[in-house]
Simulated scan of single mutants.
Amino acid sequence: MAGGKMKKERQRGMESHFQGGIPFYKSKGQHILKNPLLVDTIVQKAGIKSTDTILEIGPGTGNLTKKLLEAGKSVIAVEVDPRMVLELERRFQGTPFHNRLKVIQGDVLKCDLPYFDICVANIPYQISSPLIFKLLDHKHCFRCAVIMFQREFAMRLIAQPGDSLYCRLSVNTQLLARVFHLLKVGRNNFRPPPKVDSSVVRIEPRKPLPLSPDKLKEWDGMLRICFSRKNKTLGAIFKQKKILSLLEKNYKTLQALHPSQNGQEEMDLSMLHDGFEDAVMDADDGKDEDDEMELEGSDMDSMAEAGETGSAFKDKVSGVLKQYDYENKRSSKLSQNEFIHLLSVFNEACIHFA
């Protein structure tokens, strides 16, 4: 009797991982929305127009795809799993939607994305950060992206100064886009259910950006330092010998290359990729940014090679922080505009982060 009961439970567990005869794999982040009311809500909150071309990432078996086709002009669906691609084509073959659906089989992070007006996505959580970067770096301007994220990751995207989840990811994302939390989604709305709850977020790219493209690598370099110990004062962070050594090395290199001006190579949004990636890793492993340095190994090696920092340069950095009242402030409480101003006054003093 007990054996039969256990067998039935195992069978129910297997069935929960199937839809239309296709097994879903948790290891690949395949969690299909099964709640039709939730699907309708996501489409409604996306604000789709009848003339819109919609990019859908991770369409699965097409539950959301059908609603998107009903609302917009056309759907471009990017799906990495060939089984799901076949299911999509089978589902819409011979329907009025067939000619308005284009399916691209491939990894969305490696594909060249076509023109689209709106992106709607229920994605594997492990690609959250690089996907945001890729979308915000898209050469064609789009109106918005409505994306399902792991709830804690979504909360980091919208976190404000003083919030416990406020981090470099928050500041970087909000520099490039306006981010709005739309709704919380419980794990039982998926088949199979993930281990955590989700949230749907609306991302609207900023045009123009608050910073010029040639400043973006420097911006991220400064934030790496500021958020290496986000709850310590900036005065304490910038007194560390290794950080001062790296900055002084940059200072001397730039002075040697451009004795009369501060030369900077042109950079683009791709320079932010590493920053988004590191922030997601912090979110995934549960480590607080105040527990370990976020600077990459190559940066640490460069700092070690720079040797002891001259007291004059140390005074120069400290002087900037004191003059503009940043010495006793903490990154965890600084706004985006304050970070932009901090970068500006450092640059005016010929102190650079790239």
Rank of each mutant, 00 (worst) to 15 (best):
T233C: 05
M293W: 11
R151P: 00
G62Q: 09
S170T: 01
G263D: 10
L136Y: 03
V171F: 01
E266C: 01
H341W: 06
I123L: 10
R83K: 13
F346A: 01
S344Y: 14
T41Y: 12
T233D: 01
D284S: 12
H140K: 10
V317F: 02
M267Q: 02
G307H: 09
D315Q: 03
Q261F: 05
Q30I: 04
V345Y: 05
L55P: 11
Q261E: 11
M84F: 15
K45G: 00
Q126P: 00
A121Q: 14
H138A: 15
K7V: 11
L183A: 08
C141P: 04
G4V: 02
H140P: 02
V185D: 11
V80M: 11
L175E: 04
H258R: 07
K8Y: 02
K34P: 04
C141F: 12
L101Q: 07
G106T: 07
D291W: 11
S228L: 08
K134R: 15
N172I: 15
L37I: 07
G307T: 06
K232A: 13
G3P: 00
P96W: 12
T309W: 05
S270M: 07
N63S: 07
R90D: 12
P161F: 01
H352D: 07
E292P: 00
L38A: 12
R151T: 10
V43N: 09
A279R: 05
A2V: 10
R168T: 13
G47S: 08
V179P: 05
I104F: 01
A256T: 14
D315Y: 00
L257E: 15
L109P: 09
E204C: 04
R12F: 09
N172M: 13
R178Q: 14
C111Q: 15
A256F: 12
C350F: 08
L109G: 09
R10W: 04
I158R: 02
M293F: 10
K230S: 10
G72S: 15
V39S: 02
R224K: 12
H352S: 14
N337I: 09
N231C: 11
K249E: 06
V78E: 13
V171M: 09
Q44M: 08
G186N: 14
F142P: 10
